[in-house]
Simulated scan of single mutants.
Amino acid sequence: MNFRQLDLNLLRVLVAIHRTGSVTLAGKSLALSQPATSNALARLRDYFEDELFVRAPTGLKPTRLGEQLATDVHEQLLALETQLVGRQEYVPANSEVHWKISLSDLGEMMFLPKLASTLRAEAPHSRLSNISVNADQVTAALESREIDMAIGILAPEHRGIRSELLFHERYMAVTSLGWRPPSGRAGKTLSADQLRQSGFAVASPTATFHGSVEKMLSRMKLEDRIVLRSRHFSAMPDIARQTDLVAIIPEMYVRELKWRQDLRIWDITDAPVYEVRMVWHKSTDNDSRHQWMRQLVCRLFQR
């Protein structure tokens, strides 16, 4: 095996097939035809004397050597990109970077307007997309550069993922103005007994929040009191207003509802506190573009 005989462009094909599980999709991501990508895979197999990828019901799966090579090569390619591009002086006003972040529907409501406004002022030629990724797929999306960062109730433990705490979050209850607890006095906080006698409406977004509302209710042994599940937090205020249900929403959203005169807001007794974090891949640690973007997110949302 002579390294000088290896066409290094083939390594990009190796990583793309590993990421997509498909010769066709790998070729599209690299602007290569399907025959050209198949030929590249054949040359890789000849060079390494290994199948590298084998067919499975869900697509191409790497062999042990294929997994090791693709993982190592991917890290080296990311590091090389950072060395060649990321260390250049970054000038936001001239930047045409397309930023890709992952936010839940609530994160989009709470973070995206302010972030977009600031980018339009400081980096007007850049673009911004919310690529909403399931919480359990955030690490893979960061590794493949599908997204640049994610913000939410996340605690990734993968060795290649970095994170920074933005703020602490807790959940509160929202009801119609005329709603009263089934028993006891109507103070500012709903007691455990009052909660056990109430019906709940909850949102269960998949992206960046890990179903933390239902986890909280499960920890409090109240999951059997969930009457309605929605995919989006944005529906919660009107559900509370038009029903006798108690909507459970994050405190940061509560702040946006303070002006509404048709809702009542309650604290929840013994509600746990969660960490809202920004997460990114370590390969961008020294990239001046990404450093600027992370500093911007902290400037806008860290408290």
Rank of each mutant, 00 (worst) to 15 (best):
D72L: 15
L165K: 09
L25R: 13
A16Q: 01
E143L: 11
H281D: 10
G211M: 05
L115A: 10
D136I: 07
R219E: 14
R260Q: 12
R196T: 04
P250L: 04
S230F: 05
F200C: 05
E169G: 12
A16F: 03
P250D: 03
A36Q: 07
E67M: 12
V202E: 00
L142I: 04
S117Q: 14
I239Q: 03
E108R: 08
L32E: 03
E143K: 11
F3Y: 10
N94P: 03
L80P: 00
V138M: 03
L222T: 00
A116F: 09
V133D: 02
N2Q: 12
S29P: 02
V246I: 07
H232F: 13
L11N: 01
I248V: 15
I268T: 08
I249K: 00
K215Q: 15
T63C: 09
D267T: 10
W179Y: 11
G187M: 06
L77R: 02
L115S: 05
E122Y: 10
S102Q: 02
R55K: 14
R64K: 14
L228W: 04
L77G: 05
K61H: 10
K258I: 06
S22N: 08
S163L: 08
I239E: 06
S117H: 13
E223G: 11
L257Y: 01
R127T: 15
P272G: 10
S29M: 07
V23G: 06
T82F: 04
Q137M: 13
D7K: 09
L300Y: 03
R64L: 14
H232Q: 12
A141C: 10
P182T: 06
P57Q: 07
R260P: 03
Q291I: 12
S163G: 10
V202N: 01
W292L: 08
L44F: 05
P92G: 12
T189R: 09
D136H: 13
V273T: 14
A271H: 06
W292T: 06
T82V: 10
L119Q: 00
S283W: 00
D244I: 06
Q197P: 06
R145Y: 02
Q194P: 05
